[in-house]
Design a protein around this nucleic acid. Sequence first.
DNA 1: ACACTTATTTAGAATCATTATAAACTACGA
DNA 2: TCGTAGTTTATAATGATTCTAAATAAGTGT
Lengths: 133, 133
Amino acid sequence: MTNYTEKLRNSGLRPTKQRLQICEVLFDTEKTFHFTINELEQKIKDKTNNKISLATVYNTVHAFEKKGYLKQIPINSDQTYFDTNVTDHHHFYDLNEEKLIDLENSDVGPISIKRKINGKKIKSVEVLVKLED
Amino acid sequence: MTNYTEKLRNSGLRPTKQRLQICEVLFDTEKTFHFTINELEQKIKDKTNNKISLATVYNTVHAFEKKGYLKQIPINSDQTYFDTNVTDHHHFYDLNEEKLIDLENSDVGPISIKRKINGKKIKSVEVLVKLED
DNA sequence: ACACTTATTTAGAATCATTATAAACTACGA
DNA sequence: TCGTAGTTTATAATGATTCTAAATAAGTGT
Ligand SMILES: [Mn+2]
Ligand SMILES: [Mn+2]
Ligand SMILES: [Zn+2]
Ligand SMILES: [Zn+2]
């Protein structure tokens, strides 16, 4: 039941009814989660009686991603996956069930990148562990 | 100048003119490389006078992937990226130039995955290091 | 070489996630 | 309350990928 009005304003985003509703679906949860745009659209339908245009869902997700409230997960899928966990973290990807699972940082030993590229700095280091039966 | 006829036959793939040409473009190289379907199509045009249908390029890449001669790289892009380096290895991804760079195994320290999922086994462990200016 | 079967190629259509458009609506400061 | 810039929305456009079904080629047995 967080109030997102000020948070949005402080980010330079107007707190519209649609954005507030999407915030509730995305961030008023015990745990972080992974989703596609279509899954998010469904969650919005389930949680609210209000219809939000698909274009607005895309717009909002992209706006939130730009502000750092969401991030994309690099995975080969027909649809783009997003993550409400924006901390640096790793994933299991279950190939049979096509499901993503968060790894805690303590689940993966420290990773040392020994090579450097001139003029570039490391923004993130992410591990994807593929699982099969 | 490898002859791919037997290799294809041994994989249960008929050595057609199109597949042999695509093999030459993909595998007759000093170094392995990354490509999208469109980039591959262009390379084929450049290297041969023969026109290969786009559908055949897709079919062939998927057939080769299934046989383990190519693999997909998990990256967020409009187009799917493939890799002729099918060994387990890691990548730099230059966010500014949108370019993939292979990391040698010696460039990354050993990675220990401490968590296990019941009934699942690890198929691969891949690191994606994002770079920015 | 010939006939037969099955795999492959191909042009074009279909699919579908995503993005663009442009008009209506809304938040918000003056 | 006005004016403006930001936002929403239905709808169209885009473009990568997949599907279709007819033509062609490869493999097999004779
Ligand atoms: Mn894809
Ligand atoms: Mn995408
Ligand atoms: Zn995650
Ligand atoms: Zn690679």
